[in-house]
Nucleic acid binder design. Structure first.
Length: 466
RNA sequence: GGCGGCGUAGCCAAGGGGUAAGGCAAGGGUCUGCAAAACCCUCAUACACCGGUUCGACUCCGGUCGCCGCCUCCA
C-alpha cells in the first residue's frame, strides 16, 4: 500500500505519516468563532479537513476528530485590546451573546451537513471548559511563564525558547515589523493574554470567577486545554487555515508545550485561502459569499464541494462562477454515470474494484491529499468500458474519500409530476405516434413552461425538473 | 519596509529537467422525428516576461511585472 505523506508545516516538507499509537489518529481542527455566518472561504478549510479525515479512514486508521467552537474570548483585535467578537455580535443583533453563539453554531453545522462534511466525534465549546482553561493557566503560572498586568494574565514568550518555530519566525524578526505597541504593560510585543479581566464597571454577559479575578479566557487557551483533554499530549494532527500559523497556532504551541513539557502535535496541516475572481475575498470587497448565496443562485452545495476538491488544499483556490458552473456540470455527469450503471443492473456488492485503478487513486490521495489528481483517475476510470457492478463498486469506494454522496444517487429519481403535465405528456405521445411532430414539439414547449423537460427514451418519455 | 507563495488553454486546475493529467466551455460525429443524456473525436510547438545553467527547461538559478498572503483580527 502506498504510504501516506502529508505536508507538515512544522518543518515545511512532506513527511510520511505515522500515528503515535497503533493505527489510531487523534486529530484536532480549529473550529468556527460563532459570531457570524461562515463564508465559502471558511468552508473550504473545513472541506480540506474533512478530506484529510476521510483519507485517514480510507487508509484504515481509526480517527478521533475533535473540533472546538469558539464562543467566547476571540477579540476584534489581537493586541489584546478590542472587544470580544461575541459581545459585539450580540449587541448588533440585539440578542444575548449566548443566543448569538447558538444561532451561528447551528448555522455552521447546517452548512457542513449540506457539504457532507463528517461531524467531528467531539465538538467542544470554549465556554464549557472554563475550569480546564483555568487549570492550564495555573500550571503555566506555577512554572513561571505568566505575569499579571492591569487587564489580565499574560504569557511571557521570552520564557519559551522555541516560540515561533511553527511560523519559522524568530521573535526578533517579528519585532522588526511590529506596529507601535499599544499595551505598554506587555513585556514583549508577542506576549498574549491567557485570562482577561472584565473591564472595571462593566458587567460582561460572559464572565467567570478565577483565581485572578472575574473575567474570561484568552482566545488561544481553549484549544490548548481542550485538545489536551480529549486527545492527550502529544497528539497526531492539528489543522486550521494558513492564517493561524503565525499567531493562533504559534501561541497554542507555546502554552501547551510550556505547560506539559512535551510536543503538542506531530503534524500541523494548514489549508490555503480562497480568492474570488483573482481578488482578495472579504466582507468589504462584497465577495464573501455564503453557502446560502450559492444555493439561492441554484447551485448544489456539493457542486461547491466538488469545486474545492478540484484544487489542492495548499494552493489558493480562485473562485469564479464559471468554475462553479463547471463543477456543477461535472458532478451531475458523475451522478449520471451512477444512474446509468444502476439502471444497467449494476450492484456494487457484486462488483470488483480494479487493483490498478485503486492503486492510482490511492497514490494520488496519499501524496499529500492530491485530490485534483485523484479526480483525474476517477474520470479516466469512469470513461473507460466497465461492467455496471464494477463501476458502481469502484465509484462508491472512491466516494468514501470524495464525499459526493454518490451512493444516494439512484437509477430513477422519482419526481412528483403534476396531473396537468401528465396529461400533456399523454397528448404528446399520441401526437408522436401519429407523427405529428409539430404538435409534439408544441406540447413539449408547454410542458417546459410548467418547469419540466421531456426526454424520450426507448422505454417511453421521461420528465425532468428544469 | 521585511518575509513567503503563486502566475499552465475561454474558465477551474494536476504535473514536473526529456518534450503538457483531468473537469467545464467550444467545434465535429454516433444515436434521436427533433431534442436531451450518453458515448467517440478535435481542442496549449506551449506553461507571465527577460536572461542564465544544461545535450535538453514549462519544470533549476537570477531579474522584471502581476496577483495573493504573513509581519496586524481573519479559514
Amino acid at each position: 500500500m502506498a504510504t501516506l505523506k502529508l505536508f507538515n508545516t512544522l518543518g515545511r516538507r512532506k513527511e510520511e505519516f505515522k500515528p503515535l499509537y497503533d493505527n489510531e489518529v487523534g486529530m484536532y481542527t480549529c473550529g468556527p468563532t460563532v459570531y457570524q455566518y461562515a463564508h465559502i472561504g471558511n468552508l473550504r478549510t473545513y472541506i480540506f479537513e474533512d478530506i484529510l479525515r476521510r483519507v485517514l479512514e480510507y487508509n484504515n486508521y481509526k480517527v478521533k476528530h475533535v473540533m472546538n467552537i469558539t464562543d467566547v474570548g476571540h477579540l476584534t483585535s489581537d493586541a489584546d485590546e478590542g472587544e470580544d467578537k461575541m459581545e459585539v455580535g450580540a449587541r448588533l443583533a440585539g440578542k444575548s451573546a449566548w443566543e448569538i453563539a447558538q444561532l451561528y453554531t447551528e448555522a455552521f453545522f447546517k452548512d457542513t451537513e449540506r457539504l457532507n462534511i463528517l461531524k467531528p466525534h467531539i465538538v467542544c465549546k470554549a465556554t464549557d471548559h472554563i475550569p480546564e482553561q483555568i487549570a492550564l493557566i495555573q500550571k503555566l503560572e506555577a512554572k513561571g511563564f505568566t505575569y499579571r498586568t492591569s487587564d489580565g494574565i499574560y504569557f511571557d514568550v521570552s520564557k519559551f525558547p522555541d516560540y515561533g518555530k511553527l511560523a519559522g519566525q524568530r521573535l526578533e524578526e517579528k519585532e522588526a515589523g511590529a506596529r507601535v505597541e499599544v499595551n505598554p504593560e506587555k513585556r514583549n510585543p508577542a506576549d498574549f493574554a491567557l485570562w482577561k479581566f472584565s473591564p472595571k464597571g462593566v458587567k460582561r454577559q460572559m464572565e467567570w470567577d478565577s483565581p485572578w479575578g472575574v473575567g474570561f479566557p484568552g482566545w488561544h487557551i481553549e484549544c490548548s486545554a481542550m485538545s489536551t483533554k480529549y486527545l492527550g499530549q502529544p497528539f497526531d494532527i492539528h489543522c486550521g487555515g494558513v492564517d493561524h500559523i503565525p499567531i493562533h497556532h504559534t501561541n497554542e504551541i507555546a502554552q501547551s508545550e510550556a505547560a506539559e513539557g512535551v510536543k503538542m502535535a506531530n503534524f500541523w496541516l494548514h489549508g490555503e485561502f480562497m480568492i474570488v475572481e483573482g481578488r482578495r475575498m472579504g466582507k468589504s470587497e462584497g465577495n464573501a459569499y455564503l453557502l446560502d448565496d450559492l444555493i439561492k443562485r441554484g447551485y448544489d452545495p456539493l457542486a461547491f464541494r466538488y469545486l474545492c476538491l478540484n484544487t489542492h488544499y495548499r494552493i489558493q483556490l480562485n473562485f469564479t462562477w464559471q468554475a462553479l458552473d463547471g463543477a456543477q456540470t461535472a458532478l451531475e455527469r458523475l451522478r449520471e454515470h451512477v444512474r446509468t450503471a444502476r439502471a444497467g443492473g449494476g450492484d456494487p456488492a457484486q462488483g470488483k474494484i480494479s487493483p490498478e485503478v485503486r492503486e492510482r487513486f490511492l497514490a494520488a490521495i496519499n501524496d499529500d491529499l492530491n485530490v485534483p489528481q485523484a479526480l483525474g483517475v476517477v474520470w479516466d476510470f469512469v470513461r473507460s468500458p466497465q461492467n455496471p457492478s464494477d463501476k458502481l463498486a469502484t465509484l462508491l469506494d472512491f466516494d468514501r474519500v470524495l464525499g459526493l454522496r454518490l451512493s444516494e444517487v439512484h437509477a430513477e429519481e422519482t419526481v412528483e409530476v403534476p396531473q396537468e403535465v401528465r396529461e400533456l405528456l399523454t397528448q404528446r405521445e399520441a401526437a408522436r405516434k401519429a407523427k405529428n411532430f409539430k404538435e409534439a414539439d408544441a406540447l413539449r414547449a408547454k410542458i417546459a413552461q410548467l418547469g419540466y423537460d421531456v426526454i424520450d427514451t426507448p422505454q417511453g418519455p421521461k420528465v425532468k425538473r428544469r
